[in-house]
């Protein structure tokens, strides 16, 4: 019956309370610092730079007191894809990617240049680094902190018609709806199964698989839209008028000290982009 237990696999909103400094940080500062760090990882093209980044990410995992195995649990299922990607990059890029780079391997039509080897290593390192950054962020931030943070950070942009409050509310409702949808989908799958329907099947029967999904997906969409209509009535009946003039139960109070971490992240980003790393 385990194939009907959809809720078990949903890890969104999972929080690992270790009480570390990162857990206690102001969510606004944490969001900004994470964005800067993701920028640093995404735009560092050198091997030396990525070695520094790997070390920095390990430090962040340690700072969050999150077990390394837990932060990196996404690596194991990704290994086949990582290998496939590396093979494709090694086989097919050839001289097309940076023709001036020296050839390190040549056999028949397969040409591997030093630049392509570096590319393979950098893509793999970047994946591991981003996995650590995003794991630490999601495991150390409660969803309520996240939505408060988004709303607060977007408040100054309200004059440019960026609906910060509304976006935060959308994220809240969306996260709240996921378990409701999972329960409904379980019901639909059981209803199908009790009438002889089957879910699943191998890689080669993908047409069949898709056809089996339809009797679940179509009612699921209708269910979600219908629940949405009910929620709209409920909100408007209670005179919901959006974010203007609204006060909050939780008020984020941050001092200048909270912004030291994003400042450090900004300095780090600039250093990563400016410093001449080898490789």
């Amino acid at each position: 019956m385990s194939e009907f237990e959809l809720l078990r696999n949903i890890t969104i909103g999972q929080y690992l309370p270790t009480g570390s400094y990162l857990h206690r940080m102001d969510p606004r500062a944490k969001i900004v610092a994470t964005l800067l760090l993701v920028g640093a990882v995404s735009f560092t093209p050198t091997l030396g730079g990525n070695a520094v980044l790997l070390a920095a990410c390990l430090l962040i995992v340690a700072l969050g007191r999150i077990p390394l195995g837990y932060a990196l649990r996404g690596i194991l299922p990704a290994i086949p894809v990582l290998v496939l990607l590396a093979v494709m990059q090694l086989l097919f890029f050839g001289r097309a990617y940076d023709p001036s780079s020296p050839v390190v391997f040549h056999w028949g039509w397969i040409v591997v240049t030093a630049a392509v080897v570096r590319l393979v290593l950098v893509s793999a390192a970047r994946f591991v680094e981003l996995l650590m950054v995003t794991s630490v962020f999601t495991l150390s931030t409660r969803t309520t902190e996240l939505t408060h943070g988004i709303e607060n950070l977007l408040r100054p942009f309200r004059r440019f018609r960026v609906p910060g409050h509304e976006l935060a509310l959308i994220v809240t409702i969306a996260i709240r709806f996921v378990p409701t949808l999972a329960l409904e989908a379980e019901r639909l799958m059981k209803a199908q199964a009790s009438r002889g329907g089957r879910i699943g099947g191998g890689r080669w029967q993908f047409v069949e698989r898709t056809r089996q999904l339809l009797p679940i997906l179509v009612p699921l969409f209708t269910f979600a839209l219908r629940r949405g209509e009910e929620l709209i009535v409920a909100m408007e009946a209670r005179a919901y008028t959006g974010g203007a003039g609204r006060t909050a139960y939780t008020v984020l109070e941050g001092g200048p000290a909270d912004w030291l971490v994003p400042a450090a992240a900004l300095a780090f980003l600039v250093a990563m982009l400016r410093l001449p790393f080898p490789g």
């Binding site: 696999n9 949903i10 890890t11 969104i12 309200r158 018609r161 960026v162 609906p163 910060g164 409050h165 509304e166 509310l169 959308i170 994220v171 809240t172 409702i173 969306a174 996260i175 709240r176 709806f177 996921v178 409701t180 949808l181 999972a182 989908a185 699921l220 969409f221 979600a224 839209l225 629940r227 949405g228 929620l231 709209i232 909100m235 408007e236 919901y240 008028t241 959006g242 974010g243 203007a244």
Partner: peptide, 25 residues
Amino acid sequence: SQGGLSTRGIVISAVLAAIAIFLGA
């Protein structure tokens, strides 16, 4: 509302985004 998003817009965005998250999770 002031931001240019109606209650309807907020809720429909949220439930459909929830379906996308659900399908992925």
